[in-house]
Design a binder for these strands. Structure first.
Lengths: 157, 157
DNA sequence: TATGTGCCTGTATTTTTATGCAGTAGGCTG
DNA sequence: CAGCCTACTGCATAAAAATACAGGCACATA
């Protein structure tokens, strides 16, 4: 009957949000302790149905994941056209462009809606990108550099 | 040298955000096409360093994942103390409580910061939870029901 | 130069997850 | 009731991902 499955999946959700489950075997053992006798195969299917994803810190409901919306083609063009240099500075990234290139580049960067970006400010030939942390700046920098194809010779300050 | 690794990881980030890579073998083949010769083992390590997680729709940077903040103990208590009935309605969930139970229960629900919840309204013995979609309502309902231990006999309207 | 350390990577293997297939149970129709 | 679905599950296995181990290379130090 269907109720058993629904109940089990509810328990799975509770366990993975409540504590840190490392893998499906461990999850199986935890459920076993609650008289829920299932195999790893069933858990694999349950986790798939529940759209749960495995992260370094355990499983997470995928509901919180973004939906992916083909975000990038225009950005790649803007970067290859305008980007002259890229300079990291803690949690910020300074992009240099030819004269009057900053505004269009900043617009493209904004449109790409990188989750790391807290905000951008564009002057004439300089775009300042403020990220939420140094880690995020590093991640963003890697993405941007990869768009350009070859690593830009970037130096601090 | 370290630059090769950084560059490769940038390419990995680009590939996984740009197109849909199903597994590390496929990623390896795509990189191979770009003269990047690495093994699956190295990609596993790269993906781990980049905090990339595998979802049903391919790989995603984990930067966008929430940080996990011991979210649940008080909610469980509030639910077991106050929750009398739970009724789904499209993208909404109606929780019934004993008289004057709604406010404390709503506070606990709010504090839990479920990502599915758009907002809550509490009367005297009724809490209305508005979620962002019917799917999210279902997910939330399962979580809540699992807190209670036994599935609440819930019915529409 | 010899020696030591740290980083990076491949090979081989283990561990973890996904799935093809078959069996069971409940519901529905004639 | 027989026959036929459909949903669910376990078993066995395949596929995918992680890792123990060792080798290589760059760099520093004596």
């Amino acid at each position: 009957m269907a109720t058993a499955k629904k109940f089990r999946q509810g328990q799975i959700l509770r366990l993975i949000t409540t504590e840190r489950i490392a893998n499906q075997e461990e999850l199986r053992r935890r459920l076993w302790m609650q008289r829920l006798r299932v195999t790893q195969a069933t858990l694999s299917r349950d986790l798939h149905e529940l759209k749960v994803v495995k992260t370094p810190e355990g499983y997470r409901p995928a509901s919180v994941l973004p939906q992916e919306t083909t975000p990038l083609p225009p950005l790649a063009r803007a970067l290859s056209e305008f980007l002259v240099d890229i300079r990291p500075a803690e949690n910020m990234l300074v992009l240099k462009t030819p004269p009057s290139g900053a505004q269009p580049l900043a617009a493209a960067v904004d449109a790409a809606k990188f989750p790391e970006i807290a905000g951008t400010i564009a002057g004439d030939d300089t775009v300042l990108i403020i990220t939420t942390s140094k880690k995020h700046r590093e991640s963003l920098q890697q993405k941007i550099e990869s768009f350009v194809g070859r690593p830009l010779r970037s130096r601090a300050s």
